[in-house]
Structure formats: C-alpha cells, structure tokens
C-alpha cells in the first residue's frame, strides 16, 4: 500500500499539478469564479484522470508506440464525453456554470501528461492512484483559488454569506483580471518562501510539459 499513498502525497503536495507543475492553466483561471465551480471542475478532472490513467495503463502493452498519442486522445475524449453527459444529466447547474470548459478537459495538459509520463510505464493500480493524487491536488488548488476569489469578489464562501456587512465586495476578483491576479499572488508567495514551481524555469516555447508538446520538441529537434 505504501507506493500508492506516496502517489497521493506526491499529487497533492510535492507535484501539485496546478500550483507546482503549472499544468491545466486554462481551467485553473477560467472556472475559479467561485469555490463550488472550482470544486466541480476539479472533481470532473479527477474522474477523467483516474479512469484514463487506469485504462491507458491496462492497454499500455497493446497500444503500438507510434500511434500512442492519438490513441490516448481518443480514450481521454471518450471519457470526457461520458463525464459531460453525466454532468448534464445529474448536475445541470454545474454543467451550465462550467459550459465549454467541460469538453475542454480533453486538451488539459495534466491528463495527457500523466498518461505519457506515468500511466504508460506503470501497473494499473499504481497509475489509478497517481490519477487520484493528481486529481485531488488539482481539485484542492482550484477550490482554494475559487474560495479566495469568491470571498474577495462576492463576500461569500460556497454560496454562504460570511463576510461582515461592512465589507464591500471587490468585483474585479470574480472578473477575468482577478484570475491572473490571484494566481500571480500565489506564485509570488511561493517564490518568496522558496518553493520551486515550474514557472520559475519558464523555457521559451515548449518545455515538454505535456505529451503532445514533448513530441513536438522531439520532432522539431529531429528536423532542424
């Protein structure tokens, strides 16, 4: 059981996908207008991530190496469609709040990145636990960012009034610039206390963060 727990610890703290690896920035910024939206997005991604890691790990010896990326994309896209239909059927409020960002889970770097970096090389159980860890890390990060923005921008937390009446909500926090601002402050604090994030070593163009991107680097080098 030990390596499994290690995967979860790794996903939540050591390699938190949103805050340390800086993957999946689009949903991190776009849907965190409230804590509940961030949580919903995190859970949707978690579900896709666990199942895709499991399926890809089970199929890792069957999928030929040359066509692995298209194969992964088809698997992930099918799972995302399932999640999309389930959300539409059972949590319509969340479905309309997240809108286009649910189908866009397909192009979330975290999922293809974990498929390529972990699930394609490890046994099913461990890969699923890696998905759980990464998914939880993503969910926690999104919920926290959403909570901060909701608290400052609307004076509520998970929809409940928590701020005193004298507090005037700073609306910009739930608008677009607020997303960049909160993320900036979080990374700035992490920099100040010397927690290394991938953002500190930003590499021009592509740094192999995600699978398809890494492939680009390989072929790019091959041709030049």
């Amino acid at each position: 059981m030990k390596p499994c727990m290690e995967r979860i610890y790794n996903g939540i703290l050591k390699e938190n996908p949103a805050l340390v690896l800086m993957l999946g920035m689009c949903p991190t910024l776009a849907v965190t207008t409230s804590a509940i939206n961030g949580f919903g997005m995190g859970v949707s991604t978690l579900a896709v991530l666990v199942v895709s890691n499991l399926v890809i790990s089970l199929l890792r010896k069957v999928i030929p190496d040359e066509v692995r990326l298209p194969a992964y994309i088809v698997i992930v896209a099918s799972l995302v469609t399932v999640v999309e239909l389930l959300t539409e059927a059972y949590v319509p409020a969340l479905y309309s709040a997240l809108g286009i960002y649910i189908p866009l889970i397909v192009v979330n770097c975290i999922i293809l990145g974990r498929a390529e970096a972990f699930a394609s090389k490890n046994p099913p159980m461990l890969s699923a636990m890696d998905g759980v860890g990464m998914g939880l890390g993503f969910t926690i990060a999104l919920t926290v960012i959403g909570l901060v923005r909701e608290l400052l921008g609307a004076g509520t937390a998970f929809g409940f009034e928590v701020m005193p009446d004298s507090f005037a909500p700073i609306a910009i926090f739930i608008k677009a610039p607020g997303a960049f601002l909160v993320l900036m402050i979080i990374i700035m604090i992490m920099n100040a206390v010397h927690i290394n994030t991938r953002a500190n070593k930003v590499v021009e163009g592509c740094d192999g963060c995600c699978a398809t991107c890494a492939k680009t680097c390989d072929t790019g080098k091959g041709e030049s």
């Binding site: 960049f180 900036m184 920099n191 994030t197």
Partner: peptide, 18 residues
C-alpha cells in the same frame, strides 16, 4: 525577487485584462 519569472508576466496580463 519574488516577482521574477511567471508573476511579473501574470501582472502584465492582469493589467492587459483590465
């Protein structure tokens, strides 16, 4: 120092978004 790297880019993005 704490702003070096990603935060300063994000700060530019904040102002552009506004």
């Amino acid at each position: 120092a704490p702003l070096r790297g990603a935060p300063i880019v994000l700060l530019c993005a904040v102002l552009m978004a506004i």
